[in-house]
C-alpha cells in the first residue's frame, strides 16, 4: 500500500524493527529439554513452556544381536584379547551395529577390524564427530564408519571423550582418516595424538573456537526485509 506522499519511490524506508525480539539469547542445542517453543520469558500461558522432555538414553542391546552382528562381535572378541575391557556398549538399532569403544583402544581395534580374516573392514568410510552437550562429561563422540568390501557390510565404532580429551589416530591403519580427523579436530576440538598434521582444514588457520560444537553460536546476522528485521536463525522462535 503506497500513499501519495511516499517520496522514496516505493522503496521501503528503514523503520524500527517489528516482530521478533532480536535481543533474545542465542538458542542452545536444538530440542531443549524444557519448553516447547524455544523461547523463555514471554507471555506464553499455554503451559507448553513447562514441558520437560526426557533425554533419550542409549542402552546397549542384549545378545543375540541378529543378522551379521553376532559374527562381527564374535570375530572381534576372538581376535582382540582386550575385548571385554575396551568395548563399553554394543547397540543394535535400525539395522546397524554400533560398538562403543574406549578412546585409548581405538587404534588397536581399527587394526584388527581391518586385518582380521573374519572382519576385513578394508574401507574406512567416514570419521566424524557428534557433540552430545548435556549428556555427561564425555560429550564429544568420534564416530568411525567401517565398510567391509569382502563381506559387504558396515559397522560403526564410536568413542567418547571429554572436551580436552585425546584420541589416538587411526591414520596408520586407515590413511583416509587423515583429512577426516583434521575436520573433526577443526569442527569439534578433538585432538588426535599421533596424527601427522593436525591443523585446521575447513576454517581459516587462525580461527578461534570449534564451530560444530553445540555451544558455538550459529553466528548469523539480523536481516532487514521490507521494513522488518528478522533475527538470525538461532534467535528466532522455533516450534519444537
Amino acid at each position: 500500500m503506497t500513499t501519495p506522499e511516499n517520496s522514496t519511490g516505493g522503496v521501503p524506508v528503514s523503520a524500527d524493527p517489528v516482530g521478533a525480539d532480536i535481543d533474545a539469547p542465542a538458542q542452545t542445542p536444538s530440542s531443549p529439554r524444557k519448553g516447547m517453543f524455544g523461547i523463555t520469558g514471554s507471555g506464553d500461558v499455554s503451559g507448553f513452556g513447562g514441558l520437560v522432555r526426557r533425554h533419550p538414553e542409549v542402552v546397549g542391546s542384549p545378545k543375540p544381536y541378529g543378522s551379521f552382528f553376532d559374527e562381527v562381535t564374535d570375530a572381534l572378541e576372538e581376535a582382540y584379547p582386550g575385548f571385554a575391557d575396551a568395548i563399553e556398549k554394543v547397540v543394535v538399532d535400525r539395522g546397524e551395529l554400533t560398538l562403543h569403544v574406549k578412546a585409548e583402544k581405538i587404534a588397536e581395534i581399527a587394526q584388527i577390524m581391518r586385518d582380521d580374516e573374519g572382519l576385513r573392514f578394508e574401507l574406512c568410510s567416514s570419521v566424524s564427530g557428534v557433540d552430545y552437550l548435556n549428556s555427561d562429561a564425555r560429550r564429544l563422540h568420534v564416530v568411525y564408519h567401517l565398510t567391509s568390501m569382502t563381506y559387504r557390510r558396515r559397522v560403526r565404532v564410536e568413542v567418547a571423550v571429554p572436551v580436552d580429551g585425546t584420541v589416538p589416530t587411526v591414520t596408520s591403519v586407515y590413511p583416509t582418516a587423515d583429512w577426516q580427523e583434521r575436520e573433526t579436530y577443526d569442527m569439534f576440538g578433538v585432538v588426535f595424538t599421533g596424527h601427522p598434521n593436525l591443523t585446521r582444514i575447513l576454517m581459516p588457520d587462525d580461527w578461534e573456537g570449534h564451530p560444530q560444537r553445540k555451544d558455538y553460536p550459529l553466528g548469523g546476522v539480523a536481516v532487514e526485509y521490507k521494513g522488518a528485521e528478522i533475527p538470525p536463525p538461532d534467535q528466532r522462535r522455533v516450534y519444537q
Binding site: P29, S30, S31, R53, H55, P56, S125, S126, S128, G129, V130, D131, V143, H145, Q180, Q212, V238, Y239, Q240
Partner: peptide, 16 residues
C-alpha cells in the same frame, strides 16, 4: 550420518 534426538530438527548430520 544422521543423528536424531527425537525432535523436529536434525541433531547432527554429517555428509561424508
Amino acid at each position: 550420518h544422521a543423528v536424531s534426538d527425537g525432535g523436529t530438527h536434525p541433531y547432527r548430520v554429517h555428509m561424508r
